[in-house]
Design a protein around this nucleic acid. Structure first.
Length: 425
RNA sequence: GUGGGAGUAGCUCAACUGGCAGAGCACCGGACUGUGGCUCCGACGGUUGCGGGUUCGAUUCCCGUCUCCCACCCCA
């Protein structure tokens, strides 16, 4: 039997109703902050991710679906393509390519769509997964660098989670410094680790060499005392960076968004600078990050664009749906009315009635003239329809229909032109 | 990529130390004419994930493989 490929899955009704509910809530909240949707290709030039996410990151080094495309002629070399493992790179590429900096103010863009990473699947981790993300990017003169933008993004996220009824989340906040700070800090960290890393767990030692920042993610209990003594990024922030971070926190306090400072929070993608954050949730197992993001002031230039500081985030929609208390039934709109045609020739008559009711924005399910009335009732009940409309020759000849409320059992006679009103009541 | 657990009907699960693969729920039909839910009766439903091996005989034991789950790695 042919099956969905590893790490991918079908989203079926009624669960898709929950997904649509989440999408709609996100679009609604984003609109209030004047964000607009961008749709970028799922397929991009491999080099885009190598230059933005970073060659040395796990995502690029070993988790991408990438292949060499065929050239136009058999002899011609093809282009290396990749399925996008995240969407920020694509958005910034589009910002540059379409000269969006020529538009007034900052660009506030959001996206909803599938991303691909060739990882080992697990709960809350799929090879095709879905992200809802947003970016603020633009010239510094338009205010893209302002801590007000960082705070606006974080406050918007808190609003969205509240709106979805998700409780028990925690906002973890840190500043990982400007590019220069990071370079100095990395060096200091390397030196500090050089003498003591032998005492650490092998896995943590490996990190000390490949990516010193990642040492802070080490969970081995015995190594914690060593990690505690390492220099912190907060000691290396230069004055402007420190000020920036302080202002982000001030605004958050002002608008009442709770956060926890976590100076061990580091983010994996190379392009991050200054503000870094994660929202975590308890009910997700090992994959406890429901969303993550941060500032990426140098990304546009790294991709050959103009200076364009930016900040953004990505929500793992699969994980968001998992942490959502709502079941599909809570958001499922069931049929307002089930129309039961009775007898030969009635299909063509009820089709017109259904059309009339649907144009009044009612959800209508249509039976078939071959069904016995009893069967129609059974189906209508199972579908959870509010009403059943009995439509036989009598009804069409008199113009008065039998409308029965399936929950209360109350049945009334209703003239055809009052049906919609009676059902909506 | 590493380590561990699990795959039996649409779903949730049984099947003793190897001996004819079952139940509940769901689905479909019926309990006579244009009135559902409850109840009763009946039918349908299987390459026991897939491929090898051992055996008179394998859902059961062994090997391989695929998928999911848990942890690691990493991340959303």
């Amino acid at each position: 039997m042919l099956k969905a490929v590893r790490g991918t899955r079908d989203l079926l009704p009624p669960e898709t109703e929950t997904w649509n509910f989440v999408d709609a809530a996100a679009r609604d909240v984003f609109r209030a902050y004047n964000f607009h949707e961008i749709r970028t290709p799922i397929l991009e030039d491999l080099a885009l991710f190598q230059r933005s996410v970073g060659e040395e990151t796990d995502i690029v080094a070993k988790e991408m679906f990438a292949w060499e495309d065929r050239g136009r002629a058999a002899s011609e070399k093809g282009q290396w393509l990749a399925l996008r493992p995240e969407n920020t790179a694509g958005v910034v590429r589009a910002y540059i390519e379409n000269k969006l900096w020529d538009r007034p103010g900052v660009q506030k863009l959001y996206y909803i769509g599938p991303q691909f990473r060739r990882e080992r699947p697990q709960k809350g981790r799929y090879r095709q997964f879905y992200q809802i993300g947003a970016e603020i990017i633009g010239p510094a003169s338009a205010g893209s660098e302002s801590p007000a933008r960082d705070a606006e993004i974080l406050e918007m996220l808190a609003t969205l989670l509240d709106r979805l009824g998700i409780t028990g989340w925690t906002l973890q906040l840190n500043s990982i410094g400007c590019l220069a700070d990071r370079a100095r800090y990395n060096e200091a960290l390397r030196q500090a680790l050089a003498s003591i890393k032998d005492k650490m767990d092998p896995d943590c030692q490996r990190r000390a060499v490949t990516n010193p920042l990642r040492v802070f993610d080490c969970k081995v209990p015995e190594d914690q005392p060593i990690i505690e003594k390492l220099p912190r990024i907060s000691e290396f922030l230069d004055e402007p960076c420190r000020q920036h971070y302080a202002q982000v926190k001030e605004i958050l306090r002002s608008v009442g968004v709770a956060f926890e400072e976590n100076d061990r929070l580091v983010r994996g993608l190379d392009y991050y600078t200054r503000t870094a954050f994660e929202f975590t949730h308890g009910a997700l197992g090992a994959q406890n990050a429901i969303l993550g993001g941060g500032r990426y002031d140098g990304l546009s230039e790294a991709l050959g664009g103009p200076p364009a500081p930016g900040i953004g985030f990505a929500i793992g929609e699969d994980r968001l749906v998992m942490s959502l208390g709502k079941s599909p039934e809570d958001v499922l709109r069931k049929p307002d009315v089930y129309i039961a045609p009775l007898g030969a020739g009635m299909n063509k008559e009820v089709a017109r009635v259904a059309r009339e009711l649907r144009r009044k924005d009612l959800v209508v399910e249509l039976g078939d003239e071959s069904f016995r009335l009893k069967k129609s009732f059974e189906i209508a009940s199972k579908l959870g329809a509010k009403y059943i409309l009995i439509s036989g020759e009598n009804e069409f000849s008199t113009g008065v229909f039998a409308l029965k409320n399936l929950a209360t059992g109350e049945q009334v006679q209703v003239p055809r032109d009052s049906l919609a009103a009676a059902i909506q009541r």
